[in-house]
Every structure is written in structure tokens, then in C-alpha cells.
Simulated scan of single mutants.
Amino acid sequence: MPNADTNPKIGKASLYQTDFCAWTEAQAALLREQRWHELDLLNLIEEISALGKQQRQELRNRLSLLIGHLLKWEYQPGRRSRSWLATIRVQRRDTVALLQDNPSLKPYLDEALPQIYQNSRDLAMGETDLPASTFPSDCPYSLSEILGEKFYPGEPSELVTE
């Protein structure tokens, strides 16, 4: 007979509410064992939906950081550093990998770019203390430039080597 320890749907406080990690492991075990009738379907559906949203959020966060650093790179050439260069390179690689792992996110880029750029612009303004008028109101870079490993806006830098 199922009890609260073996069935995550039994009891006043479900395992989903009290120990999310244990709940995910229990759901995975039920799926592997094809015990369909014991699955916590409502919460499972919610979590699967959230996974897609989480990937979109990760894409927005990575691109916001990347574009923010491209703006700083272009508009504060005298303050360029290896740290900025590393951030640009890592965010590019991670964004490209995220898009390779989730190709359905590619069409979302055009829709999300205006919001992403506003976040990037705010980041650049906050980290440079330059006025808003310094930065274009719309993203000055194409997606292929943003993700292109050889694109560094503004004047050339000795930090960037082939």
C-alpha cells in the first residue's frame, strides 16, 4: 500500500513542496519504471514548462551581459581589460552552445533582442557612468556580429589577438 514516503502525491505537504530535489528523483524513477498512474502530473507539467522558460531566461541573461560588454568595449576603449575580453569570449561561446543545444531558441532572438539590448544598455551605463545619450537607443550590432568571435566594436585593440 502506497504511503507518503513512496508516493509523492500523498499527504498534506507533498514531496514537491518539501524537498524538490527528492521529488524530481522520485518522478524520474516513476518514469523509468513506467508507473504512469503514480506521477505527480500537475507539478510535472508545470516544471517541464518552466524548463523552456528557463532556457529563454538564460539566453537573455547571457546576451545582456555580452552586449553590455561590447558596449563598454566600444565606448570606453581606454578602460578595456583582459577581464572584459574574457567575459565577451566566454559569453559568446556559452550563448552559441546554448543555441546549438536548443535550436528552437534561434527564432526567439529577433523578438527578444530589443529587451535584451535595453538591459545591456542599462548594464553599460551603470558600469561606466557614461550618460544614456552615449549609447544608441537601438542595438547597433547585428546578431551575427554579437555572436561572431572576431567582432569587437570600436577601434582595434592590442588585447585581441588572432
Results as ranks from 00 to 15, higher is better:
Pro8Val: 15
Glu127Gly: 04
Arg89Ile: 13
Tyr152Ile: 14
Lys53Tyr: 06
Pro2Ser: 14
Ser142His: 12
Glu38Ala: 10
Phe20Asn: 12
Met1Ala: 12
His37Tyr: 13
Leu130Ser: 10
Ser157Thr: 04
Tyr16Ile: 04
Ile10Leu: 15
Glu74Gly: 03
His37Met: 10
Gly78Gln: 15
Phe151Gly: 00
Ala112Lys: 05
Gln55Lys: 03
Gly126Gln: 09
Gly148Thr: 11
Gly154Asp: 05
Arg32Pro: 01
Met1Gln: 07
Asn3Lys: 12
Thr24Trp: 08
Cys139Trp: 15
Asn43Arg: 02
Thr87Gln: 03
Met1Pro: 00
Gly126Phe: 07
Gly154Ile: 03
Ser14Phe: 00
Asp101Thr: 10
Glu74Ala: 07
Ser144Ile: 13
Thr6Asp: 08
Ile10Gly: 00
Pro8Thr: 15
Pro2Val: 07
Leu85Cys: 01
Gln54Lys: 04
Lys53Ser: 11
Leu130Pro: 08
Leu39Gly: 11
Ala124Asn: 13
Tyr108Cys: 14
Arg80Val: 04
Pro8Gly: 14
Pro2Asn: 14
Leu105Lys: 08
Arg32Gly: 00
Arg79Val: 05
Gly78Val: 09
Arg62Gln: 02
Tyr117Gln: 06
Ala4Arg: 13
Leu143Asn: 12
Leu98Asp: 05
Gln34Lys: 09
Tyr117Leu: 09
Thr18Gly: 03
Leu30Ile: 09
Thr6Val: 03
Arg93Val: 13
Pro131Tyr: 03
Thr95Asn: 04
Ala13Gln: 12
Arg80Met: 08
Glu33Asn: 06
Asn43Ser: 00
Leu44Ser: 11
Ser120Met: 09
Ala132Glu: 14
Ile48Thr: 12
Lys106Phe: 07
Glu158Ile: 01
Pro156Asn: 01
Ala22Glu: 07
Leu44Met: 11
Asn7Glu: 08
Asp110Pro: 02
Gly11Asp: 06
His37Gln: 13
Ala50Ser: 13
Val96Ser: 11
Asp94Gln: 14
Thr95Ser: 14
Asp94Met: 10
Pro156Gly: 03
Leu105Gly: 07
Thr161Glu: 10
Gln118Ala: 07
Ala97Ile: 10
Leu31Met: 12
Pro131Gly: 08
Arg79Gln: 14
Ser104Asn: 10
Ile146Glu: 12
Glu38Pro: 03
Thr134Glu: 02
Leu70Arg: 03
Ile10Ala: 06
Leu51Gly: 02
Asp129Leu: 15
Ser137Thr: 12
Leu98Thr: 13
Ala50Gly: 04
Gly78Ala: 15
Arg79Lys: 15
Glu145Cys: 01
Glu111Met: 07
Asn102Arg: 05
Gly68Val: 11
Gln57Lys: 00
Asp129Ala: 15
Arg35Cys: 02
Leu147Asn: 06
Tyr141Arg: 11
Ala124Gln: 11
Asp5Thr: 00
Leu159Lys: 08
Trp73Phe: 14
Leu42Val: 13
Leu123Asp: 05
Arg62His: 02
Lys53Trp: 03
Leu113Tyr: 04
Gly11Phe: 05
Lys9Ala: 08
Glu149Ser: 09
Pro131Phe: 07
Leu98Val: 08
Arg32Met: 09
Glu127Trp: 06
Ala26Ser: 14
Ala112Trp: 03
Tyr141Ser: 08
Ala86Lys: 14
Tyr117Lys: 07
Thr95Met: 06
Leu147Gln: 04
Gly68Tyr: 09
Leu143Ile: 15
Ala50Pro: 00
Arg80Lys: 04
Pro103Asn: 12
Gly11Val: 02
Phe151Lys: 05
Glu74Pro: 01
Leu66Thr: 01
Thr134Ser: 11
Asp138Phe: 04
